[in-house]
């Protein structure tokens, strides 16, 4: 007997979109995070201010409200900007997938900013001085000395941010993105078995969390290879 009464396929439909949104958001958030960390650490006042306002606002406002602000805000802003540029009325319609990725990217970029800031500050100053004294340019120092180590310091924080991001994709259903929650809703309505469907969806999210934690563990092991540690 099929406990999903023939609607089991909705989970497959939904989870692929949920995974795709999360995977596409991660690079956006990482780029935003690196930019934000640069903004916070640069010896350039306006950059400091912009980066500080960015993280302060994102951490002070609920995700749901941010999603609605960014979703509608970005649409209105792009519409306005394009209209100004072209001199005519421009109507744009961002598809909900792109909008969702951009929205979550902006939000979780702020969390990644704090992670990267901490990671850059964890690199011993002496190494940077040594690199400069060997004649490396700031960019070469960044590429050869800092970036390889930043990942090691940033991985635990990025892993946590990823887990929160994964769960936050469920909120994308409010901007009409057809991810797991929305498809589950379709199944629940058609079968009148809301408990069965939402419970299954929750276990699918739990499964994604468990897989992510296992991958994070492996990634941390990889990033820390060759590092001596106290062990008992």
């Amino acid at each position: 007997m099929d406990i999903y009464q023939g609607y089991g396929w909705v989970f497959w439909q939904g989870i692929t979109i949920t995974i795709a949104v999360a995977l596409c958001t991660a690079p956006v958030a990482i780029v935003m995070g690196l930019l934000g960390a640069w903004g916070k650490l640069a010896k350039f006042r306006p950059a400091n201010t912009i980066a500080n306002v960015y993280t302060t606002v994102v951490r002070g406002v609920p995700e749901l409200v941010l999603i609605l602000i960014v979703y509608y805000g970005v649409t209105i802003f792009l519409q306005w900007a394009l209209s100004e540029l072209t001199g005519g009325e421009v109507l744009i319609d961002i598809d909900s997938f792109t909008a969702g990725v951009l929205t979550l990217g902006v939000i979780y970029g702020a969390f990644a900013t704090e992670v990267f800031r901490g990671a850059f500050q964890a690199i011993p100053k002496g190494q940077i001085e040594a690199a400069r004294s060997l004649g490396m340019s700031p960019f070469l120092t960044l590429r050869r000395i800092m970036m390889p180590q930043v990942w090691r310091f940033a991985l635990p924080g990025l892993g946590n941010t990823w887990l929160v991001l994964l769960k936050a994709t469920a909120l994308m259903s409010v901007i009409q993105l057809e991810e797991l929650m929305r498809w589950t809703d379709i199944g629940a309505r058609n079968t009148k078995l809301p408990f069965t469907f939402y419970l299954t969806a929750s276990f699918l999210y739990l499964g994604l969390t468990i897989i992510s934690m296992a991958l994070q563990h492996r990634a941390e092991k990889w990033a820390n290879r060759g590092i001596r540690r106290i062990s008992s």
Partner: peptide, 23 residues
């Protein structure tokens, strides 16, 4: 603890609010 920390709050909310209707 693992269940409530590992799943989205929105699913938990729907599970209680809509899910209870099943029983």
């Amino acid at each position: 603890i693992f269940y409530f920390r590992g799943t989205p709050l929105l699913v938990q909310l729907f599970l209680v609010y809509y899910g209870s209707g099943q029983f």
